[in-house]
Design a protein around this nucleic acid. Structure first.
Lengths: 226, 226
DNA sequence: TGAATATTCAATCTATTTGGAGAATGATTG
DNA sequence: CAATCATTCTCCAAATAGATTGAATATTCA
């Protein structure tokens, strides 16, 4: 029997798989996926991450340690704060994108949530990156970033206007009335842009949602403004 | 405070992340990564998987249930056997590839194992898919599949000769003496082809390792033979 | 030193891994 | 059709690992 060989009980492979499993485990908790989405916008302190994710500070810190040990994120100290960022942002964002694609394709409920919430029938069908580039080139379109101001400040799509979702009603005047609006936010599962589009449509504006967010744009190597 | 909005405590997102976390958790154990590598060669029964992974049947079955609930693999019944296969093989293989790339890039020890074991200095530097295609086109190269015969039978690269690693010494005659050999096996971390190359070089043959395996080739949409 | 941030600890609760025993399912045979 | 066999799944029990909170402990700044 060639079992000893066929069995592939090889040391180097198993050591590699042990590390890869640690990375996958680190992605294996909803809170950590959300933390990664937040960190992907730019470096952020533990306190901010706790506030935006709704977790306690201690728990946030604990989760961050796990991301850190798996080499997905890394902190740097700035005064009393620890600012976390992704380690190879574009590789990590690609990995998260791939995870999402498997979910959308293989898990019926994910597909259901996406098509019922993020891709409403009619004209809410999201705009792809290529379509956006085309329409920006054509001219008459306003690109709207609805993330909080500090996330916008750390990087955004070239030419985008920042109006955080909470201020959208008050700041409507800053959006040209006669051009279509394309809104984006943190990523494919972030609902800020979805809600912005709904709100704008209620006001009679022509609005669409970009199907990806700032991190994916940046990971694709497209130019960003800071 | 716009916390309720900024906090992104949105239902649809959290439901999606719960599913994605389940998928990631399913990848979060070395044994399951190895099972996936085996399943990626083609459908396989619980017994075969247990034998090749070195796990007990009960444990193998348990792990397979987890892959099943995460919608990464699926069984079909054939007589008394349950044959497991990947659900969207090319998406799943892409995900595994992306996981591997993050590991190679971010985890120093993974990079170390790979370059010391899989990429020995000199001429053992692995051959890329493009190089393979080029050299196949050029003619004088023998493509060698060193996986077990049943895996070969379920699909292999066009024109490949199958000599399972265990039989390599005995079957040396089947390899043309004057052309270089490029060997491949189950995937980037599979050691069969590595050992085949080492063995062939001991016999004075010119041999190289393809840096990817059959599943990656197939997932890339390239033609396969069965 | 005191205030602000982040990490670690202790405690608790829950989930995962594993082998072994046995149940369930489907094939085979008398 | 019953009896038997092969294969897979489930349940059990013990060990291990993970998640969460509040309290205690660093670390830095003023």
């Amino acid at each position: 029997m060639s079992e000893a060989i066929t069995m592939s009980s090889s040391r180097p492979k198993q050591r590699i798989y042990a590390h890869l499993a640690e990375i996958a485990s680190a992605l294996g908790h909803p809170h950590r996926l959300e933390l990664l989405e937040l960190i992907a916008q730019g470096e952020r302190s533990v306190e901010e991450l706790a506030e935006r994710s709704g977790l306690s500070i201690a728990n946030t810190s604990r989760h961050l340690q796990i991301l850190r040990r798996a080499r997905l994120a890394e902190p740097r100290r700035e005064g009393k704060r620890m600012l976390y960022s992704l380690i190879s942002d574009s590789e990590v964002i690609t990995l998260l994108g791939s995870l999402g694609r498997v979910g959308e394709r293989n898990v019926a409920e994910v597909e259901r949530i996406i098509s019922s919430y993020f891709r409403a029938r009619d004209a809410l069908e999201p705009v792809s990156r290529d379509t956006l580039l085309e329409r920006l080139h054509g001219g008459s379109v306003t690109l709207l970033d609805v993330r909080p101001a500090d996330e916008f400040a750390q990087g955004h799509l070239p030419g985008a206007i920042n109006i955080p979702l909470a201020e959208l009603d008050a700041a409507l005047a800053r959006l040209p009335k006669d051009t279509a609006v394309i809104a984006y936010c943190r990523g494919p599962y972030c609902v800020l842009s979805y809600e912005a589009v709904a709100a704008l449509r209620l006001k009679g504006r022509e609005a669409y949602r970009l199907e990806e967010g700032y991190p994916e744009w940046k990971a694709a190597g497209l130019p960003v403004e800071a």
